[in-house]
Every structure is written in structure tokens, then in C-alpha cells.
Design a protein around this nucleic acid. Structure first.
Length: 606
DNA sequence: TTAGGGTTAG
């Protein structure tokens, strides 16, 4: 405490000096200055406690200025203790709004959201009027808590006190509703704002990202740009990268990468991980691997994105090697990592290894399996053709089953032509509330293969009775750095005439290659010609036609889809890859399909 | 005299 002793000496000295006008005031100011400088020099709790004791000794605590700064230093510094900050706060007789705000902010920083909200209630009860700084902090707390009810109550208070026009309050409201997945409320606030800051744009984009409206995220970025409200911020760029990843927008992802390199000197681990994820999920596995190798520091998420990426690309063995490396590094895997690991085993056909991993997940890492893990296991066992075992596994599951698990089994039965178990899986699916028309089609096709025509008819009638229609799927394709979205059967596209002409031209070429449309998966009660017309309008085909028109010969076409692929689109795309000599990379919800020279990397299993 | 608000990865 030599430094403090010197200060103390100077303080005593100052007290002896007389100021001609306001001697007392000058001494108080000096004391306050010393108090601040002492607090600023604290680097840990011990030093802080010593300073606190010293200030008490000097009788400085009754001074509101000193009390405020004591609470702020202890609550907001990296080394501070919230308990200690609270105890100091409790010694203040009549805390003012600023002091309440500071402690609330500290509690939010310390992830004590509920306590932060309680303190606000106390503040109101004690008659301290919250100011416009209070609300953004509180809204942040309810956003982090995903507490819509609390958030809406606070919104009510914002109105009552007339803070609804404050820019920061509005930004915080957009964020709160966004985190609670109430995107419409976020949009309503955003749209009525007179003035928008970069933060407003960031908040509305993040709100769209939260509910998976990735295409809308890109559109908002475009708008933000055109309104001249653009300053590359790390966090905003990370959200942009995430949108690129989900949409499979490689070019835009690459541009975002260069934007990072131009504007941010050192890429942190979040940015690096997001970049790896983007490259891997946009089909550039090697680039992702390369970035991973150059990372100075890796965490669980960095490993997680690459493990699941390798699994998606069908490189199960490498994914497992990476998982072992992760464990050797002393990183503890979580449930998401294990989803990647189990799906890697499934893609590589490693049944025993998969079963061992599943066991290890429970016993060694204490992770309770979720439906996703069970889904992977059924997929793994079913893919290997062990359908009886897969069914046995399902029956032993100590968890309520969902459609995904049964659908995995049904899909394995389809591949291995096991009608008996297929029927069990399909019937279980039909009993569940989520009705998916494609389940009926798969079963009906299995009956058709076994030439059970009565059952085919019965299944179709059941489907019609339930009024099930196919949900329109989307495909995204990137052309000249812009992402275009195609919805099945949607003819409203401005370039529709050109696309239709291309589809017509493709159809002729396909006929020469012996293609005949597979109408078995068109679920409408229409004639054969109409069904063929319907097939032509599948979003993936529209996207391919558009890309063939607008990209140079020989360049690869990259598509991302919202749903899994139908048989007809799969066959169609294989043939297009030969006729037009294009590599076509399609990413569906589960995996990648590399179409090249008339074959697909999934070896027709998906 | 002092101090406080939004947005980031699987």
C-alpha cells in the first residue's frame, strides 16, 4: 500500500491548506478525485477491499460520489464481486436512479437476470424514478431470460414514462422481442422508427436470424447498405456469415470474409469458427480444414462445426479422428458435438463405433440423450440394414418418440425394401400429430414395389381424406454474388419466361438421355400430364435452370434447399450434370449431394 | 467532479 500511503499523505496535506472562498468544498473535491484515482488503480478484489476500508477510514462513504464509484467499480470490473457490490449498495441510505442502474447493469453482466429485474421492482417501489438508461438494461435482462412476459411489462412501463421514442430503448425493444422470437413485434418497432442507427439494423437482422429467416437477413443487409447505414462491425458481419452459411451463399460468404480481413485486424475465435462453418456448409470443406489448421486457439465450437461438417460431407472416419483429437486437447464434448459424432458414424456405416460413442456419451460425459441422438442411432442402425435391431432400439427408448425417429426408420426400410417394419414405422408416423404427406408417399411406393395395389390405393385415399398437400419447398442459388430464392410452382419470378424456356430446352435434352419423370411422388389428384408439369416446377429445377442461364459454362452450381430432395429431382440433377457438364452441389437439411458426371456422392441413399 | 444503453459462432 505504498501508493495509497503517499496519497493519504497528500490528502492530509491538502486538508491543511486553506482555500480562500470555499475551503470545505475544495477539500471534498480533492478527496473525491483521490477516491477515483485510487479506485481506477485497483486490479483485484483485495486491492479494492483495502481502498474501500481506507475510504471508510477517511469518512468518505457518506459522500454519494464515492459510494457510486465504489459500487460501479466493484460491479462492473472484470475482477469484481457482485455480492460485495450489493453489500456496498445496501449501505447507501437513499440510492438515486444512477446507482440503481449501475447495480442492475452489474447484475446483468454477471448473468443474474432475475435479480436485476427484482432490483428494478425495488427501485419503483422505493419511489426512485427510472430514467431512459434504466430501460435498455432491463430489456437486455429480459431478452437474455427470454422472458416475454417481463419484457412486455417493461415495454408497458416504457410507454407510461414516455421513453418509447428513445433510440436506445427502441433498439433494446427490437432485441428483446427478437430474442423471444416475436419477430413481428420487432419489425413493428423497427418500421415505425424515425431514425435508425447501425445498432437498430444489427438488432433487427439478429432478430430475423434468431427465427431462421436467413434470406430476409440478407435482404435487410442490402437495405442497410442502400440507406448508407453501413459500418462493418464484427458482430453484424458474424450474423451475415451465419445467414450465408444457412443459405449456402458461398460468394457472399467469401465477400464477408474479405470484409473481415479489410476492416478487422485480428479475427477472434467466433469469427474464425463462423468462417469455417460457412466454408464447410457451403461445400468448400478443404478451405474449412485449412482455416482450422491455422487457428491459434480452438474451442469446443470450433471442433463441433468441423466434426459435423465432415459428417455432412460423408467423411465419417476423419470426423472421428478429429473428435479424438478434441478429447486429447482436454475439451469436454457437449450434446451438439455428439450429434455430429453419431451422424459421422452413421454416414461412414460404423455401427459398432457408433454404439460405443453413444454409450460413452452417457456414461463418461454424463449427457442425457435427446431425440436428435436417438434419431442418429436409428439412422445408423437402419442404414446398415439392421432394421429389426433399429426397431428394438426404438422400443427401448426412454423418451417420447417424435416423427424424425420414425421417419429415419421408414427411410431405412425404403432403402432395404423391408415392408413389414416399414408399415410399423409408417403407421406410427400417421398416429402422430405432425402429418407429413411424404410419409404416405414412401409407404405407398413400397406397396407398389411389392405389387400390393389395394394397399397403394388405401394409402392414397387415406392421404386425400386427411387433405394433405405437399408443403412448397424453397431452393436458393447464388448467381453473380446475389442469392435468388425459388419456391416450387412459383411463376411470379421476373425472369420466369427465360426460366421456363430453359426448362423446356432441358427437358428435350433429358429425353435423349432416357429420362422419364417419376410422378409417383406427386401427391395431387390430377392427371399424369399435370403431374409432369408439377414436377417441372420443383424449386431445385427452377434454380438449376436459372443458374444454367446466368453462369458461365463449366462453373459449378451451388444450391441449398429447405426440404429433402424428391427422387425425381435427384435423377434429373444427375443427368443434368452430364448433359451440361456441370458440377452441381446441393445441400439439403441433412447432407451434401455432389452431382458430377451423372452420379451423386450420396450413392443414392438419402 | 464521475459514470451508464444495441448486435457475434455449432
Amino acid at each position: 500500500m505504498t501508493g495509497t500511503s503517499v496519497l493519504y499523505q497528500s490528502l492530509l496535506l491538502a486538508q491543511r491548506e486553506d482555500s480562500p472562498k470555499h475551503p470545505q468544498l475544495n477539500i471534498i473535491r480533492l478527496k473525491e478525485q483521490e477516491c477515483l484515482s485510487l479506485l481506477k488503480r485497483c486490479n483485484n478484489m483485495d486491492q479494492f477491499k483495502q481502498v474501500h476500508a481506507q475510504l471508510l477510514k477517511w469518512g468518505l462513504f457518506s459522500n454519494s460520489f464515492a459510494a457510486t464509484n465504489l459500487v460501479a467499480t466493484c460491479a462492473l470490473s472484470d475482477w469484481g464481486s457482485m455480492d460485495y457490490a450489493c453489500s456496498i449498495f445496501r449501505q447507501i441510505d437513499d440510492p438515486v436512479a444512477f446507482q440503481f442502474n449501475t447495480l442492475i447493469r452489474g447484475l446483468v453482466k454477471d448473468i443474474q437476470f432475475e435479480e436485476a429485474l427484482f432490483l428494478y421492482v425495488e427501485m419503483v417501489e422505493r419511489g426512485v424514478k427510472p430514467d431512459h438508461f434504466t430501460y435498455p438494461i432491463l430489456l437486455k435482462a429480459s431478452a437474455r431470460l427470454r422472458g416475454l412476459e417481463e419484457g412486455m411489462q417493461i415495454h408497458g412501463h416504457v410507454f407510461k414514462l414516455g421513453f418509447q421514442g428513445d433510440l436506445f430503448v427502441q433498439n433494446a425493444l427490437i432485441n428483446m422481442y427478437g430474442k423471444c422470437e416475436e419477430i413481428e413485434f420487432s419489425c413493428a418497432i423497427f418500421n415505425q422508427m424515425d431514425q435508425k442507427s447501425v445498432a437498430s439494423w444489427s438488432a433487427i437482422i439478429a432478430a430475423h436470424a434468431k427465427v431462421g429467416l436467413w434470406y430476409e437477413c440478407l435482404m435487410l443487409f442490402g437495405e442497410m447498405n442502400s440507406e448508407g447505414c453501413w459500418r462493418p462491425e464484427e458482430t453484424t458481419l458474424v450474423t451475415l456469415l451465419s445467414a450465408c452459411t444457412h443459405l449456402g451463399a458461398l460468394h457472399l460468404g467469401k465477400c464477408t470474409h474479405s470484409s473481415f480481413l479489410r476492416n478487422i485486424s485480428e479475427l477472434n475465435i467466433i469469427v474464425q469458427t463462423s468462417l469455417i462453418d460457412m466454408y464447410v456448409k457451403c461445400g468448400c470443406l478443404d478451405k474449412g480444414l485449412c482455416l482450422f489448421q491455422t487457428m491459434p486457439e480452438r474451442n469446443r465450437l470450433s471442433y463441433s462445426v468441423l466434426i459435423s461438417g465432415l459428417a455432412m460431407h460423408g467423411r465419417g472416419q476423419e470426423a472421428l479422428r478429429l473428435f479424438s483429437e478434441m478429447l486429447r486437447q482436454g475439451l469436454e464434448p457437449d450434446d451438439v458435438v455428439y450429434v455430429g459424432v453419431l451422424s459421422a458414424c452413421s454416414h461412414a456405416g460404423l455401427v459398432d463405433e457408433g454404439l460405443r460413442c453413444f454409450e460413452r456419451m452417457i456414461t463418461e460425459h454424463g449427457i442425457v440423450p435427446t431425440l436428435q441422438h436417438y434419431g442418429c442411432m436409428v439412422d445408423l442402425i437402419g442404414r446398415a440394414g439392421l432394421l429389426g435391431e433399429a426397431l428394438g432400439f426404438i422400443k427401448k427408448m426412454p423418451i417420447e418418440l417424435n416423427d424424425v425417429v420414425w421417419r429415419s426408420l421408414l427411410s431405412a426400410c425404403k432403402v432395404h425394401h423391408d415392408l413389414e417394419i416399414g408399415e410399423i414405422a409408417a403407421k406410427s408416423l400417421f398416429q402422430l400429430s405432425s402429418q407429413n404427406p411424404s410419409d404416405y408417399v414412401v409407404l405407398s411406393n413400397m406397396y407398389a414395389r411389392a405389387q400390393k395395389w389395394d394397399d397403394v390405393a388405401r394409402t392414397r385415399i387415406e392421404m386425400a381424406r386427411k387433405g394433405l398437400n405437399q408443403t412448397p419447398g424453397f431452393s436458393w442459388v447464388e448467381v453473380s454474388r446475389k442469392v435468388y430464392k425459388f419456391v416450387s410452382q412459383d411463376r411470379s419470378h421476373p425472369k420466369w419466361d427465360n426460366i421456363y424456356e430453359m426448362i423446356h430446352q432441358m427437358e428435350w435434352q433429358l429425353k435423349f438421355e432416357g429420362y422419364s419423370p417419376d410422378t409417383s411422388q406427386v401427391l395431387l389428384d390430377v392427371d399424369e400430364d399435370e403431374k409432369k408439369e408439377r414436377l417441372k416446377g420443383h424449386s431445385q429445377k427452377l434454380a438449376i435452370a436459372f443458374a444454367l442461364i446466368h453462369t458461365s459454362q463449366g462453373s459449378p452450381i451451388r444450391i441449398a434447399r429447405s426440404l429433402r430432395m424428391c427422387n425425381d429431382c435427384h435423377t434429373y440433377t444427375k443427368l443434368i450434370s452430364v448433359i451440361y457438364e456441370r458440377e452441381i452441389i446441393v445441400r439439403d437439411r441433412k447432407q451434401f449431394h455432389y452431382f458430377k458426371d451423372g452420379t451423386c456422392s450420396c450413392r443414392d441413399y438419402w
